[in-house]
């Protein structure tokens, strides 16, 4: 439908309300000073880990895939996962999912199957775009037609992180998009939670009940 309501009139009304009050003509202030950096790549990763774990997330790292895969398989098996999916076009996630199959009762399902109201206990694997050290957040976006389903629908979200994905603060992450952010930028900080019943923290409201961040070897 066409836009409704008179926008020009609203702006005029506000301008009139502001007339004669200090500051109405004030020049734009300079952007806030950039916060101090966290340090080296290793510092960023360890800070991320500390924050991500404080949100209830699981962090896995290993020097080689041969060590990592059994550990990740064990995590997923313990969570009761029986199905794995990855978004189309995510080569890293596909490789990880396929390599995981021998390490548990896992079958690969398609994103469309993961979208069904009743699906088997599923883990969604995806390469993360950024990881923010300050807040312990995994960043997934829709940039370049990327799907957001792996961090949204399944019971378990597995984010694959390359060491280059880590940034100090939220500022650096947002600056990477400039004035043209993708349709959806999501900061994901641990499993979905609610405290709406008697202020008692309960995990797994609508989103994943378990989140695993995997540092790629």
């Amino acid at each position: 439908m066409e836009p409704v309501g008179n926008k020009e009139e609203l702006i005029r009304r506000i301008a009139v309300a502001l007339r004669g009050h200090e500051g109405a003509q004030a020049a734009a202030a300079p952007p806030p000073p950039a916060p101090a950096g966290i340090g080296t790549e290793a510092d960023r990763i360890s800070r991320f880990r500390e924050q991500f774990e404080s949100h209830g997330g699981n962090f896995l790292s290993a020097s080689a895939w041969e060590v990592l895969l059994p550990a990740l398989g064990e995590e997923l098996r313990m969570a009761g996962v029986v199905a794995l999916f990855f978004p189309d076009g995510d080569a890293e996630a596909r490789r990880a999912a396929e390599a995981l199959v021998p390490f548990g009762p896992f079958t690969l399902i398609s994103p469309a199957e993961a979208r069904q109201p009743v699906s088997p206990l599923t883990a969604g694997l995806q390469t993360a775009e950024f990881a923010i050290a300050e807040t312990g957040s995994i960043v997934q976006t829709s940039r370049g037609g990327t799907s957001l389903l792996p961090g949204l629908l399944p019971d378990v979200h597995v984010a694959l992180l390359s060491p280059a994905a880590f940034v100090d603060r939220m500022e650096e992450c947002l600056a990477a998009f400039g004035q043209d952010p993708p349709r959806n930028i999501s900061f994901l900080s641990g499993p979905s939670r609610t405290a709406d019943v008697e202020q008692t923290l309960t995990i797994g409201a609508h989103g994943p009940k378990k989140t695993v961040a995997v540092l790629l070897p």
């Binding site: 924050q51 404080s54 949100h55 978004p87 189309d88 994103p111 807040t135 312990g136 957040s137 829709s142 370049g144 037609g145 799907s147 957001l148 389903l149 952010p181 993708p182 349709r183 959806n184 930028i185 999501s186 900061f187 994901l188 900080s189 641990g190 499993p191 979905s192 939670r193 989103g207």
Partner: peptide, 21 residues
């Protein structure tokens, strides 16, 4: 909390090639 679990920054509508949105 140091950060809420989910922050969504939503800009415009589904773009060409987007699988959802």
């Amino acid at each position: 909390q140091a950060i809420s679990t989910y922050v969504s920054i939503l800009t415009g509508t589904k773009r060409q090639g987007d699988p959802e949105g």
